[in-house]
C-alpha cells in the first residue's frame, strides 16, 4: 500500500489493517492518519482495523478524539476498529480525564485482535507480542 500523508504506516494483513503508532504523534500526523486509514479501508475492503498504541506513553483528548473518529469512519465503511496495547498508566489517566472511549473495541494483543476477524498471526516466540506495559520502551 502506498504510504499516505501521515508518517504512520498502514499495513494490509489480508482482510485486516494494522496500524502501529510508535512514539509521539504530532497533531497534524494524527489527523492525516484518520484520512489514511479511512481510504485504506475503502481500497482494501478490510473488515478490521487494528490500532496498536503500545508505543504511546500518553494519549490526550486530541489523540483520543482522532482514535474515536478513525473507529467511527471505519464502522461507516463496515469495518471494525480494535484498539490494542494501551499502557496501564495511559488507561488510568484517560479514565480520570473523562475519556473512557466507550465506542472503541479493545483487545490485549494484536494476535488476539486479528483472531476476532479470523486472521491467524503465529507468535513465533522470538518477538514479544505488542502489549501495553508501562515497561515498554518508548
Amino acid at each position: 500500500m502506498q504510504p499516505g500523508a501521515s508518517s504512520v504506516p498502514v499495513l494490509d494483513l489480508g482482510g485486516i489493517l494494522l496500524i502501529s503508532i510508535q512514539g509521539e504523534l504530532p497533531d497534524d500526523a494524527a489527523v492525516d492518519l484518520r484520512t489514511d486509514v479511512t481510504l485504506a479501508v475503502s481500497e482494501t475492503g478490510a473488515r478490521g482495523v487494528i490500532i496498536d498504541i503500545s508505543g504511546l506513553d500518553m494519549v490526550d483528548s486530541f489523540l483520543a478524539r482522532v482514535l474515536a473518529e478513525v473507529a467511527a469512519s471505519a464502522r461507516l465503511l463496515a469495518a471494525q476498529a480494535v484498539l490494542v496495547g494501551m499502557r496501564p498508566s495511559v488507561a488510568i489517566t484517560l479514565v480520570e480525564l473523562g475519556l473512557a472511549l466507550p465506542g472503541l473495541e479493545t483487545s490485549r494483543t494484536v494476535i488476539e485482535a486479528a483472531s476476532r476477524f479470523g486472521v491467524e498471526i503465529r507468535d513465533r516466540g522470538d518477538q514479544p507480542a505488542a502489549r501495553g506495559t508501562d515497561r515498554t520502551p518508548t
Binding site: D27, V59, S61, F62, S89, V90, T93
Partner: peptide, 17 residues
C-alpha cells in the same frame, strides 16, 4: 511515579493546546 508522570504530561498537553 509513572502514573503521575503520565497524568502531568497529559494535563500539560491539554493546557498547552
Amino acid at each position: 511515579g509513572l502514573v503521575q508522570q503520565t497524568k502531568l504530561v497529559t494535563a500539560a498537553s491539554e493546557l498547552a493546546r
